[in-house]
């Protein structure tokens, strides 16, 4: 098991957000977490990453408990977080953004080097010395993905990667993520775009008001009237 989230309860101050969320991601598996605005998708990823640690429950990565580890340590243990929105270091260059995140990974051998990222995203090589704040939305998405990859993670946490992207770029993103999936990368993918997510994922969870309402294989979720009505697929 790559990631095992067991009954986590997470708060922002007094607000009780995650009320016993459990989910798993197998090795090399792509799992999606679906839910409406405010359901707690981002909070789930933040709890796994140690940014908003769970007050109760356990987060286990490959058999190792990481619930209360500091965020940087969780990153070095092999989880990369691709946040939503324009979260890049806009004051630094594209190259500096990548170099700060680069890490040989837990296995000690770098599968993903900056050179390899440049091969997959030639645009990033062109923009190497550009200030990251000047990139377009699609280019920033590439940079966020590239930054996650050079850390050589075992598990990618993706928070609404399609948000705000033009349809053509969404298609491109789907291809990149498919490539990673084919290479055996484990992923936990939060999306509002259920169609996009269910094409990549093999399994999905539906989160509502901080609780998992439903878990099923992706094919089943695609067809279920429940998902159709309530996620507007």
């Amino acid at each position: 098991m790559m990631l095992d989230v067991r009954e986590i309860h997470t708060y922002y101050g007094q607000s009780y957000i995650l009320q016993g969320v459990s989910l798993t991601v197998g090795e090399g598996e792509v799992v999606t977490l679906l839910g409406r605005n405010g359901a707690g998708k981002t909070t789930t990823l933040r709890s796994v990453m140690g940014l908003t640690p769970a007050r109760r429950g356990h987060v286990v990565l490959e058999g190792r408990e990481i619930t209360h580890r500091p965020t940087y340590a969780i990153s070095r243990l092999g989880i990369a977080f691709v946040p939503s929105g324009r979260r890049i270091f806009s004051d630094l260059t594209v190259r500096q953004n990548l170099e700060l995140a680069a890490h040989d990974g837990v296995a000690g051998e770098a599968v993903w080097t900056i050179e390899r990222v440049h091969k997959v995203f030639p645009k990033l090589a062109e923009l190497d010395s550009r200030r990251a704040g000047f990139l377009s939305g699609g280019e920033q998405q590439m940079l966020k993905l590239g930054r996650a990859l050079v850390a050589n993670p075992k598990l990618l946490l993706l928070d609404e990667p399609t948000e705000g992207l033009a349809p053509a770029v969404v298609g491109q993103l789907g291809e990149w993520l498919q490539l990673l999936k084919d290479e055996g990368m484990s992923m936990l993918l939060c999306e509002q775009n259920a169609l996009f997510a269910l094409r990549l994922a093999s399994r999905g969870y539906i989160l509502e008001k901080g609780r998992i309402q439903h878990e099923a294989p992706a094919a089943e979720l695609r067809d279920s009237p429940e998902v159709r009505t309530y996620l507007g697929v």
């Binding site: 940014l51 965020t71 990153s75």
Partner: peptide, 10 residues
């Protein structure tokens, strides 16, 4: 700019 993101990148 973003200390939280910096921690998340190791």
């Amino acid at each position: 700019e973003d200390p939280e993101l910096l921690a998340a990148t190791g």
